[in-house]
């Protein structure tokens, strides 16, 4: 016989209700003090936009889908190419020729059918960026070119959206996180995109797939921390990774009080496009 116990008037406490399947799927998160049930609920309600379904976006999308981020947007105009598969682990050989956003969506839903994926099979431009990012809580820049990086920065600053910036090249990568009002933006650090071919982006530069994986996963981690409130973000700091030296460094980033987009002296009031550098060797 069960011990008789006095019970308070029973009432439904449904706000935290997880199904047993959700408890199991997310148990490793829920056990963590810094995330817990509340943090997992925040992840499940969060909306993250990933711009670029490539080397950075691929691992980030996979981990954010697995983490149960409720809504994930993925933007990319390209189709899967054989040369992508060395690092863009969200796509498979059978996906060659398919739009990357479709392949990425299928992979995410295969991992976690509970989430919602929105696809944007188009280039992100000054025309469409503000309307697209407006619906999201956090934006992840997984693009490879400087015009896109400046566009994402400016639009996020103007729309007051937090975002993770990252770049990779050869054996190195770096990332920083912008949070409105809390730290420098990308344009505080770099005023203008470099002229085409001035820095090795299009020419003679490769990248190790795992470097893209490391940095893309760190971007996903920034999104998880922003959403759950756990720990310290990379605001006002640039995290750099040198794979050959097996070295991570964190470099403090000051704000530029004259920044063209995030300071009181703002001269940029609407997002605009720089000319996309086309490669001579194409």
């Amino acid at each position: 016989m069960r011990m008789p116990v006095l019970r308070a008037a029973s009432f439904e406490r449904n706000s935290m209700a997880f199904t047993n399947e959700q408890l199991e799927r997310y148990s490793r998160h829920i056990i963590l003090k810094e995330i817990g049930p509340k943090g997992q609920k925040k992840l499940m309600k969060a909306k993250v936009l990933i711009i670029g379904a490539g080397g950075l976006g691929a691992p980030a999308a996979l981990y954010l889908a697995a983490a149960g981020v409720g809504t994930i947007g993925i933007a990319d105009a390209d189709s899967v190419d054989l040369s992508n598969l060395q690092r863009q682990v969200i796509h498979s050989t059978a996906d060659i020729g398919r739009p990357k956003v479709e392949s990425a969506r299928d992979s995410m839903l295969a991992i976690n059918p509970e989430i919602t994926v929105h696809t944007y099979h188009e280039y992100i431009t000054s025309e469409n960026i503000s309307a697209i990012i407006r619906d999201y809580d956090f934006i992840l820049d997984g693009t490879d070119n400087f015009p896109a990086k400046f566009l994402i920065n400016d639009a996020c600053v103007l729309e007051e959206k937090p975002f993770s910036h990252a770049g990779i090249i050869r054996f190195e990568g770096q990332l920083m996180t912008y949070v409105p009002g809390e730290g420098p933006c990308y344009r505080c650090v770099f005023k203008e995109p470099p002229p085409k071919d001035a820095v090795p982006t299009c020419r003679e530069a490769g990248v190790v797939g795992a470097v893209a994986g490391v940095i893309g996963c760190l971007q996903a981690m920034e999104a998880v921390k922003y959403i759950t409130g756990a720990g310290d973000l990379l605001t006002g700091r640039l995290l750099t990774y040198n794979a050959l030296r097996s070295q991570f460094r964190t470099v403090p980033l000051p704000r530029d009080s004259h920044c063209a987009v995030c300071s009181y002296e703002r001269t940029i009031h609407v997002p605009f496009d720089y000319e996309l550098p086309t490669c001579d060797l194409k």
Partner: peptide
């Protein structure tokens, strides 16, 4: 004891047993 709420964790296995209890306590 004046029980505020009850949770049944007989329908799940480790580590979800603890997770389910933890979620109930959070409430």
């Amino acid at each position: 004891f004046r029980i505020t709420d009850t949770v049944d964790i007989t329908d799940v296995v480790c580590p979800v047993t603890f997770v389910k209890a933890k979620v109930a306590l959070e409430e």
